[in-house]
Each structure stands twice: as structure tokens, then as C-alpha cells.
Nucleic acid binder design. Structure first.
Length: 890
RNA sequence: GGGCGGAUAGUUCAGCGGGAGAACGCUUGCCUUACACGCAAGAAGUCACAGGUUCGAAUCCUGUUCCGCCCACCA
């Protein structure tokens, strides 16, 4: 294998996934007694393609999985898909409607066949997309929420809850989506601000007089069964117990007093329409009012609404009601009005509150442990702020409407005896009615809310309720990774059902990440047309670059991520950098027994010590960040080290002394460590390079040992010395740049250090200084009787740097430049001196801080003195220097 | 109405009690044979506003203003 000059992801990415999957590297190695690391993927909807949210989700999970696998833990990532009830059915219905067919025309069975076909088609697409992202999940354990194993769990859950009395059926006011033609739960309703009109309508009283009522939905008055006022409302005290006459219809309406009426809203009198409004429904329950449904499941006015309106759409009925009321002179006011009616979260259709027979789960019966385990820290949310969101949510739960009038989903395991009406709920199909012995049993047609099955996902994938080896070994799982948008839909329900059914929290950690937004920070949505396809991005920049981008931007605070192309380009550039540095290292070094550990650590020079010390610190830091789920800093630390310390400095220095064995080993060792540390994020390129670096190695990178620490003793002094040398090099390059000296033009330099440390370090570093700063003649001197005339100057710590620039330096300009420099330094020095002169500071501040301030002040003072000295001497005679007796001086 | 975030360089963000950081962009110079998807040197910020706590505040507290999100029975 040879590495080409430019990194091209297309050449390598396909190959390695095959390699890993074929080599069974994704399967967990079960070790008895060892706690495994387990993630169960948030099941992906079979409704379409992956979006960037999935890409982020999958990347973060894969990082954790690969990291733990390399750490040697038995590691399992279970993949799978969700049948996505309404969403999937909608997609297929749309497909059908393009063929001019409605599902009712082809019937239940044929429609489900169509759904299955769709499901298989999309499963394949989505699975291949997940693989394309590099996800190292165990495909042998792949599950689907509607497969036999998961379905069994769903039935079991339902029956058990029913038997405990936690599930009930009844006619209640629910949210109905007329377009999807099904009930939906409260959290599937989205409130959206809408411009409407608030009408004031005049109702006559039975015994004379009139009262005005405010409403934004006048058509619902057809179903009014009462009026209500607040009990303390002085204006309407006399109305209590009287009757009003419903305009247009003529029905007699009792007037009731109820605490829930807000006297400050509208006129203070409410029309009560219990069958179409949640507040009114509550009032009706308290006052035993009639319920009259005037809107049907089709969204049309029913017969109850009267002949004139029956069959009209809600909005048509509204117009007609208004015009009729107007002709009777009963509209007192029409005011523009901003309100927030509910819309279906799946299709945006206006929700109709309707009376309907549905199934409900009393979540309050099973939530106790789910609250306690989170409060007690047995389940930990990261970032921590989501704990409160979760707990607040859990404290205020209402019964969950779990039935849906769809065809695609888990059928409710309930049968109704046709002759006697007996309801049977059980796991297996009954033969006879136990009450009347009839065999005419009809299975309930409703299906369950999708989330009812995903609530069981962390253990249904392991075949719960069967007590399988997998369930015993892999459950509870370790961490759940997901976005904050489904804490209420999914996370809370998994915790409840997990604790209720298995007595164990389904996971230890809930890692919540942000949402991926477009370049302008907007949510990605089809209607805005700003959805970016992760696969297209992977195609353009490479999967590694995409993963690198997403996880770099994923900060610990869980900020939403604004994905911008420049960052993708940067990531791709980083891949190229990694690629080329590796190419260089491979070309100048040789593999020795697969182990490149430097042999004679005692003989390492300061640069070798420096890079190893930095590596050691970076490895520790990166480990710490990753353990804390701080993905962005884990990557940042490694990227900084690799690009700056390793490539920009160490490799350049290594070029000066290619032939030494230590340097060559260190080059390889550091590279290998970086490959290991970055493999979880960018698996493809690192695996590829690894095989080129170690052609003889049998164990691929995916199974290489994770690096927790570097087995060397860190050398603080090497860091001090080398960063001082680097500062000197930078200062010299700065002068060259300032005076427009061509980079390849060699310069003559005089260095004037002030102490032994500086002197010795400069001597040690002089070959590097010469090479990296392009110095031809370097004098290091402690004697400086007169300063040179044609020089440009810099000061690094206590060292003056003079570059001989005959003819290039304008004396005045140089003076100005140095004066400015001096000004800044003095400013800094003043600040620090002020603090040091402050008795309170000395007494109260941390002693270490005071010490640091003192050192810093000394440093600054040195520099200030140096520059002052130089300014004074500027323009004097050329310097005579000796560089022999410095050693004795300090 | 309640709750939670955010406001730091032109842009996107990190920092969250001791000298203002990164990336991209920008300016200048370099094709120095690993890399121009690169190298080198730079410029760039009253850390939203007003008070307070502290020896010391971008960082903690209070209030204000803008932006975003979540929750709530706006008839």
C-alpha cells in the first residue's frame, strides 16, 4: 500500500467498513464478571433517509462504543428501526394517493402488505446509511419495533398494565387529527400562534335580558350545553341558576358558576361546549352537563349541529354561523385575536378536540420509581440541566392516550364479544367468551402509539420478557444518547416502563445533545428547504470529516450546532494534514517489530522530551474530556497537539536530524498514539494509516489498546526550555517578516540572555534556532558593551535579540516600534504591580497567585529594562561581542 | 403565565473567580520536496446594559433589554 499525496476519502472509506464487519469486530466479546459497555440505538424511523441529527447521534454513540471497545470492555451497540406509526403510514398513504388510491379502497390486509414492502425497502436504505457513517454496531442483534420479539414485549406490557388496572378504556375528550384520522396524545399536539377573530355573541336569557359571550370558535356553539361565570364575579351574581337560550338552535342552557372561569377574559361569561373543548369538558364534569358532539371524526359538522350546518366543514360552518348571527344582530364585536390552536405534529392539521372511545395508561401509577431513580442519581442526565426538565415533566403527567385509529402498528390485544359485549384483554387469541361462551369475538382494531413500543426498546431488543443470556448480561444498558426533543416522548417512558417491568433503570447515563441547525441557525425542515443530507456531505468531504465536524461542534453544554461548510472544509483539511504527516513519517522511518518504543530514554534531547511530555499531558487531558462526554474538547486537545506541536514544530525539528533512531521511533510512537486516540472519531482514515504504518501488524486499529497514559516521566524543564526556544524562533521570524526579509534569506543574529537558564537553553537550541529561523550567524553573548547600529530588536523573556539589518532599518521607525512595545509591557507591568502593592491582595489572595504575580512582574520588568536600554543605545556604534566567558558569569 | 438556555474578535463558538481564547474569515510574505486542503508573521474584542458581592468579575448575585426553546385548560 502506498499513500497518495492528497487524501481522498473515496479511496478508503468503503473498504474498511467491510473489513471490520467481515472480521466480526463489532461483536461483543463476552467476559463473565466484567460489566459490559452497552448502547441501544435510538431506533430510527423507517420513514425516510437519515438527517444530520441522526448523523450526530450516531457519531457520538460510535465514539463511545469504539472508545470502550478499545479499552477492552465487552462492548455492544444494538442497532434497530422504529415502525413510526403515523409517520410511516402517512408516507405510504401519500405514495398511494399519487396512484389515486386511498387505503380504504385496497383494505386492511393489502395496505399492510404495502407497508411491509415499504418497511423493507427503507430498512435497507437506512441500514446502509448507518453503515456508511461508520457505525460499529452489532448487526446480528438488529431489531425492529414491530418484529416478533419486540411485539411480544409490547403485548406483555399491555396485558400486564391492564391486569394491574393501569390501562382503561373509555369515552373521553381527546385530540383528534381529522387528516390522520386518529387520536393523538397531548404531546403530539403543537401549539402555533395564529391570527383569529374573537367574537362577542349575544345570548338571550330565558326570563328576559341578554348576556354577551366571547369565543374564537363560534361554530362550536352548536354544541353548547351551558354558560359559565366565575362564582365571585359581582357582575353576574344574579345569573347563577338561571337559563339562557342558545341562539340559532334554541336550546335552553343552564348558567353555572365555576372557579376555572377567568373573569378578566372576554366578557367573563363562557359558553360551555364540553364535547369540543378541554376546559369546557372539565366544567361539564363538575356540573353534570350534557355532552353534545357537533364535529365528527371527519372534521365535518354532525347531525347534532342541526340540518343547516350538518355536513359542512368546520370553517364553512363558522362562516354560516356568523352570518346568521349577524342577521339576528347578535354579533357585538369582532376583534383580531392572536391565539394558539393545536396542530398535529405530524401533518400540521388543526386538531379537533373530540369525544371518542380510547385506551389510556395511568402513567401516574408507574412513575414513582422513575422520579426517584433520577432524583437519587441512579440515572444521570448529562448535561445536568435536563434533570430538572425531566422531573418537572414527570411531576405533571396526565394519563397517556395510547390507542391510535391507524392500520400500521401493534394491534391492541383486546377482543370484544359481539353477543354480550364482554371485553377480553389477553396475550393469546381467545376462542370463546368466558361469560357467554360465544365464539364471535372481534379483535379491537385500534393500534398502539408508536412510543408505547419504543418505551420498551432497551430491553425488548434483548428478548424481554424471556430471561435470555443477552438480557442478563447486557441489560441494564450503559448510556442513552439522544436529542433533547424527545426527553418527554421517549426517555421518560423508557425509564418508567424499564423500572416497572424489569425493576432496573434501563440505562445509567442519559447523554443529551443539541439539535443540528443550518448555517443561519435555523432548524432544518423540509418546508424551509434547508435540510442538508449527511450522506451528500459525507460524499463531498468524507465521512471522517463529517464525523469530526459534528463531534467537534458538540460542546459539553449541549448547545445546538450550527453546521457551516467552512467547518467541514477545515475538518477535511485536518484529514489531509493527518494523511500527509503520516505519509512523511512512514517515508522516513522504519517499522521495528511493530513496537516503536524509543529505547534509550536517558539520551533523549529536550525536543524529544518536550514532545513526549506534551503527548503525555494531552493524552491525560483527552481521556478526561472523553470520560466526561466532552466531545468537542477531547478532539480539540488532540487536534491542537497534533497540528501545532507535532507537525509544525516536532516534525520540522526531526527533519534536521532524521538519522537518529530515537527521533524516528518517537515520530512513529506519537503518530500511533494519535491514531489510537482519534480512531473513535475518525475511524476510516486512522485505520487506513495504521495499516500503512504497521504493515506487519495483525491486530487492526479498531482492536488496538486504548492509551490511558504515556509510560514516561514528564519533563517540565523540557517544556520550559523548548517553549523558550520556540519563542525565540518566533521572535526572529517576526523580525524577518516585519522587515520584509525573504524567508530563505539567512540573517545574522546576536542573542543577549540574562541568566544561566537562558544562556544554556540557547546554546542547546541553537541548531534548531538557526534552522527554523534561517540564521546564518548566531552569536550568544553575555557581554554587551555597545549595541549594534543596524539592528532590529526583539525581547524574549530576559533575552535581547538583535538582527543585523544593514541598510534595512530606519532608526526612527525602529524606535517607535520599540516604544510601542514598551508601552504595552509597562501597562501590563503596572497592573500587576498595583495588585502587588495592595495589602489586601497580599493577605487575601491565594499564595500561589501572589507568587505567580511576583514572577510575572519580574519577567516583565526584565523586558521593560531591556527595551529601555535598547532604545537609549539605538544608533550607537556597532557592537563588539565575545561569547566565551558567559558560563563563568552566572 | 411558568420554566430553561443564549448575548465574548467580521462569523461560529469555547472559557465560567486571578494577565481576553480557538476555528474560519481578513492582512502580509512564502510552491522552504509530507501537506498551498500547506507554511510563516500579523491585525482584530468597553466579554449586551445597569447595579452589587469580592483584594480581584467575561466568570458569582440582582435587575433591565434583546434572541431562542420548552411547558400551560388564551373561552
Amino acid at each position: 500500500m502506498q499513500l497518495s499525496t492528497r487524501y481522498n476519502h473515496k479511496d478508503i472509506e468503503d473498504k474498511w467498513y467491510f473489513f471490520w464487519e467481515g472480521g466480526n469486530y463489532f461483536l461483543p466479546e463476552i467476559k463473565e464478571g466484567v460489566t459490559p459497555f452497552v448502547i441501544v440505538i435510538p431506533p430510527l424511523n423507517v420513514t425516510g433517509s437519515l438527517h444530520l441529527g441522526h448523523a450526530l447521534d450516531i457519531t457520538l454513540q460510535d465514539i463511545l462504543i469504539r472508545y470502550n471497545r478499545m479499552k477492552g470492555k465487552p462492548t455492544l451497540w444494538v442497532p434497530g428501526l422504529d415502525h413510526a406509526g403515523i409517520a410511516a403510514q402517512n408516507v405510504v398513504e401519500e405514495e398511494l394517493s399519487k396512484e389515486g388510491i386511498h387505503r380504504t379502497q385496497i383494505g386492511h390486509e393489502a395496505f399492510l402488505e404495502r407497508m411491509q414492502e415499504f418497511r423493507e425497502r427503507y430498512s435497507r436504505i437506512i441500514t446502509s446509511q448507518i453503515k456508511r457513517l461508520g457505525a460499529s454496531c452489532d448487526w446480528s442483534r438488529e431489531r425492529f419495533t414491530m418484529d416478533e420479539i419486540c411485539s411480544r414485549a409490547v403485548i406483555k406490557f399491555f396485558v400486564r398494565m391492564y391486569e394491574k388496572g393501569y390501562i382503561y378504556r373509555g369515552k373521553y375528550l381527546i385530540n383528534w387529527c381529522p387528516r390522520c384520522s386518529t387520536a393523538i396524545s397531548d404531546i403530539e399536539v403543537e401549539k402555533e400562534e395564529t391570527n383569529g377573530i374573537l367574537y362577542h355573541i349575544l345570548y338571550s336569557l330565558e326570563d328576559g335580558g341578554e348576556v354577551s359571550v366571547a369565543t374564537s370558535r363560534p361554530e362550536t356553539m352548536l354544541g353548547d350545553t351551558a354558560l359559565a361565570v366565575h362564582p365571585e364575579d359581582g357582575r353576574y351574581k344574579s345569573l347563577k341558576g338561571k337559563y339562557a337560550i342558545l341562539p340559532l338552535i334554541g336550546r335552553i342552557l343552564p348558567i353555572v358558576a365555576d372557579e376555572d372561569v377567568d373573569p378578566n377574559f372576554g366578557t367573563g361569561v363562557v359558553k360551555v361546549t364540553p364535547a369540543h373543548d378541554f376546559l369546557d369538558y372539565d366544567i361539564s364534569q363538575r356540573h353534570n352537563l350534557d355532552l353534545i358532539s357537533v364535529v365528527g371524526v371527519d372534521g365535518l359538522i354532525t347531525e347534532n349541529g342541526g340540518k343547516e350546518y350538518s355536513g359542512l366543514k368546520v370553517l364553512e360552518a363558522r362562516e354560516k354561523v356568523i352570518s346568521n348571527l349577524k342577521s339576528e344582530g347578535r354579533i357585538l364585536e369582532e376583534k383580531p385575536y392572536l391565539y394558539s390552536p393545536g396542530r398535529c405534529s405530524r401533518c400540521d392539521t388543526l386538531i379537533e378536540p373530540l369525544l371518542s372511545e380510547q385506551w389510556f395508561l395511568k402513567v401516574n401509577e408507574i412513575k414513582k420509581a422513575a422520579i426517584e431513580k433520577v432524583r437519587d442519581g441512579e440515572i444521570i442526565f448529562i448535561p445536568e440541566k435536563w434533570t430538572k426538565v425531566y422531573l418537572d415533566w414527570m411531576e405533571n403527567l396526565k394519563d397517556w392516550c395510547i390507542s391510535r385509529q391507524l392500520w400500521w402498528g401493534h394491534r391492541i390485544p383486546a377482543w370484544i364479544c359481539e353477543p354480550c359485549g364482554e371485553l377480553l384483554v389477553q396475550q393469546t387469541e381467545p376462542i370463546n367468551c368466558p361469560k357467554c361462551c360465544s365464539g364471535e369475538l372481534k379483535k379491537v382494531e385500534d393500534v398502539l402509539d408508536t412510543w408505547f413500543s419504543s418505551a420498551l426498546w432497551p430491553f425488548s431488543v434483548f428478548h424481554w420478557p424471556s430471561d435470555t443470556e443477552d438480557l442478563k448480561y447486557f441489560y441494564p444498558t450503559t448510556v442513552l444518547v439522544t436529542g433533547y426533543d424527545i426527553i418527554t416522548f421517549w426517555v421518560s417512558r423508557m425509564i418508567m416502563s424499564g423500572l416497572e417491568l424489569t425493576n432496573k433503570p434501563p440505562f445509567k447515563y442519559v447523554y443529551i445533545h443539541g439539535l443540528v441547525r443550518d448555517e443561519k441557525g435555523r432548524k432544518m425542515s423540509k418546508s424551509l428547504g434547508n435540510v442538508l443530507d449527511p450522506l451528500a456531505l459525507a460524499d463531498e468531504y468524507g465521512t471522517d470529516a463529517l464525523r469530526f465536524t459534528l463531534s467537534s461542534l458538540n460542546t459539553l453544554g449541549g448547545q445546538d450546532i450550527t453546521l457551516r461548510k467552512p467547518y467541514l472544509i477545515h475538518s477535511r483539511n485536518f484529514m489531509n494534514k493527518l494523511w500527509n504527516a503520516s505519509r512523511f513519517v512512514i517515508s522516513v522511518t522504519k517499522e521495528n517489530n511493530g513496537e516503536d518504543l524509543f529505547q534509550s530514554s536517558s539520551n533523549l534531547d529536550i525536543f524529544d522530551q518536550f514532545i513526549l511530555t506534551r503527548l503525555s499531558r494531552v493524552v491525560k487531558e483527552a481521556n478526561k474530556k472523553l470520560e466526561a462526554f466532552d466531545f468537542s474538547n477531547y478532539i480539540k486537545v488532540l487536534e491542537d497537539f497534533f497540528w501545532k506541536d507535532y507537525c509544525d514544530w516536532y516534525i520540522e525539528i526531526a527533519k534536521l536530524k532524521k538519522e537518529t533512531a530515537d527521533t524516528s521511533s518517537i515520530l512513529r510512537y506519537v503518530l500511533k498514539t494519535i491514531l489510537v486516540m482519534l480512531h473513535p472519531v475518525i475511524p476510516f482514515i486512522t485505520e487506513h494509516i495504521f495499516h500503512n504504518l504497521y504493515p506487519e501488524e495483525k491486530v487492526p486499529l479498531i482492536k488496538q489498546k486504548w492509551v490511558k497514559e504515556i509510560p514516561i516521566s514528564e519533563s517540565e524543564s523540557s517544556i520550559n526550555k523548548v517553549s523558550y526556544i520556540f519563542d525565540a524562533v518566533t521572535a526572529l521570524r517576526n523580525i524577518k517578516s516585519l522587515f520584509k526579509i525573504k524567508p530563505d534569506k539567512k540573517i545574522s543574529v546576536i542573542l543577549h540572555p540574562t541568566d544561566a537558564f537562558e544562556y544554556e537553553t540557547l546554546i542547546e537550541g541553537s541548531p534548531v534556532i538557526n534552522a527554523l529561523a534561517g540564521v546564518q550567524e548566531l552569536k550568544i553573548t553575555c557581554e554587551l558593551d555597545t549595541l549594534p547600529k543596524h539592528t532590529a530588536t526583539q525581547v524574549v523573556r530576559g533575552t535581547s535579540i538583535f538582527v543585523n539589518l544593514k541598510g534595512l532599518v530606519d532608526l526612527n521607525e525602529e524606535k517607535n516600534r520599540l516604544s510601542e512595545m514598551l508601552l504595552k509591557l509597562r501597562e501590563d507591568l503596572n497592573k500587576i504591580q498595583k495588585d502587588l502593592a495592595n495589602q489586601m491582595f497580599i493577605e487575601k489572595a491565594n499564595p500561589q497567585t501572589v507568587e505567580d504575580y511576583k514572577l510575572k512582574a519580574m519577567d516583565l520588568e526584565k523586558q521593560v529594562n531591556k527595551i529601555e536600554e535598547i532604545i537609549n543605545y539605538l544608533g550607537e556604534d556597532d557592537l563588539e561581542t565575545q561569547s566565551n566567558n558567559c558560563k563563568d558569569r552566572w
